[in-house]
Design a protein around this nucleic acid. Structure first.
Lengths: 132, 132
DNA sequence: AACTAATCATAGTAAATTAGTAGGAATTGA
DNA sequence: TCAATTCCTACTAATTTACTATGATTAGTT
């Protein structure tokens, strides 16, 4: 797992903690809470936004919030949004010249399913409360 | 997963196919069977040997064979031997200054356990016969 | 004893990836 | 209009990956 995965979880947990307030948290606040630079967080949050885990408002008073409750959003959603390597190998979800010939290919597919079904059992609430 | 993981599985499957003959396969044979260079395979097999999945004899007529039956050896054993990244993050099994403070750390541990317990249900025989 | 075929050990390297930094455009509330 | 914010994209140093290369060591054969 890359630093993006870890930082993505930090951001998600921070937004989860503040979810009931209904406010948008800006990147400066998130940077202070997580200890990650604002500029790097922007890039990571952009991926989460693309995956529709967070929504944003721009301009003054802008910021980010979760698009669903922390009970509904899973660790799997966050990691798939942020971590390219979660797909195990590049050829798994693109075309692969060895498809069918490579003994590993099907294994990677099954492993991917296994990992994701586990990660999707864990909500942000569970992660935040360390109830794994 | 790196190329070492894939090639490690190729080698393991090839040795599994020839297990009943009881012979040692040399790296030239394995290279031809897998399409991977001899020199790169040597390095990968060295890791498998260190993990006691394969044994070797040197000198003329030397080569490699599995240390147990293909039914007994699991895909998990091979991948742990060969793939550093299987441990998800470096800090998981070494000292980590953030231990306890980092919400991700425990998750990585649970994920690691989950992945390995899955991979350890799959034998080389199953992999070779594509019965996942 | 010499020869040959093999493993074993380790150094080196080009390409790709990671983990950021940096600059500035676009947006929006006051 | 101004100021605070997100959004977009280019750049870069350090690390990792995926090998290649060289040579020492070992052991069966002649």
């Amino acid at each position: 797992m890359s630093s993006k995965a870890r930082y993505g979880l930090y951001v998600a947990v921070e937004l989860a903690k503040n979810y009931n307030k209904g406010e948008y948290l800006n990147v400066t606040t998130l940077s202070q809470a997580t200890g990650v630079s604002e500029k790097y967080l922007e890039q990571i949050i952009a991926l989460m936004k693309k995956a529709e885990i967070v929504s944003a408002t721009r301009g003054a008073t802008g910021g980010y919030k979760l698009t669903a409750t922390p009970e509904e959003i899973t660790v799997g959603q966050v990691l798939r949004a942020v971590e390219d390597n979660l797909q195990i190998v590049d050829c798994l979800h693109s075309e692969c010249s060895q498809r069918g010939k490579c003994v590993a290919h099907n294994l990677w597919g099954k492993l991917y399913d296994n990992i994701n079904s586990y990660l999707d059992t864990i909500s942000l609430t569970q992660l935040a409360e360390d109830k794994l």
